[in-house]
Computed example of a mutant assay.
Amino acid sequence: MPSLESNVPIFSAKGLTKVYQMGEVQVQALRGIDLEIFSNEIVVLLGASGSGKSTLVNILGGLDTASGGRVTYRDIELTHASEKELTNFRRLSVGFVFQFYNLIPSLTARENVAIVTEIAENPMTPEEALTLVDLGDRMDHFPAQLSGGEQQRIAIARAVAKNPDVLLCDEPTGALDSKTGIVVLKALQKVNQSLGTATVLITHNVVIGGMADRIINLHDGRISNIERNEKKISPDQMTW
């Protein structure tokens, strides 16, 4: 992997804040985040519930907007983008993977992925995306015929089929046992290595940080520590 310092960041956040109004109470979810994300790297966000991980990723992905500060994607200013601009950004540039797979039960694996390829500008075929996550032999199965890990890998195939620059994953192994979770992490690693997609992965599981280029710890809406991982390991080497 090239030196991150020599790359232009794909995301740049400066002084990012987010305040939610809950009735008469203000909740400060982010308290001044400075962060850069680069192509090709895997970044793991660690932190307790309420530390701001999901809020940060939702802002990076254009699913939410910041209350203050500035965030850019390449040369696009996301902080003040219109809803149309954010929709276009999400549709063309970002793939999302969530804890729960959000597959359409009446569609096959191939058809679930095809939903995305039909609206993207330069997509893979559904067959290419499913083969990338080692599900080439399960394309015509319905979600109910597949295990949880296989359904999550379909969700990953759907997310990467549009050839996104960025893959944002919110607890992608949270609903899986460790053996199945490792299979899913291997699929994410393969996507990162094959496509060079910047991959941001939220988890409570400290062990998963072993596969990251950088581990970013959040606490109470702030980045408490950023660690460069000099000795990445394969998900096969993990146990939890």
Rank of each mutant, 00 (worst) to 15 (best):
M139I: 12
V183R: 14
F11P: 04
K186F: 05
V57L: 15
P105H: 03
R228G: 07
N192Y: 00
T131D: 15
M139K: 14
A48R: 14
S93W: 00
S54T: 14
N163W: 00
Q28I: 06
F11Q: 03
V200F: 00
F142L: 15
G69I: 03
P2D: 09
A198S: 14
R153S: 09
S224M: 04
E83P: 03
E127I: 04
D34E: 13
V183I: 12
L218P: 09
N225A: 13
L92P: 00
Q151M: 15
G181D: 06
G221S: 08
L195G: 05
G62D: 05
E150P: 11
N225E: 15
K232M: 12
A161H: 08
P9C: 04
I33C: 04
P123F: 01
F11G: 03
S3A: 11
N40K: 08
Q145T: 05
G136R: 05
I154F: 09
P235L: 01
A198C: 14
A109R: 03
E5T: 14
R158I: 03
A66C: 12
S51N: 06
P105C: 06
K186A: 10
I115H: 01
V19S: 06
L146N: 04
L185S: 10
T131Y: 00
T125P: 06
T65F: 00
A129V: 05
W240D: 11
Q193H: 09
D220K: 14
Q99Y: 06
L167N: 02
G181S: 05
D170F: 05
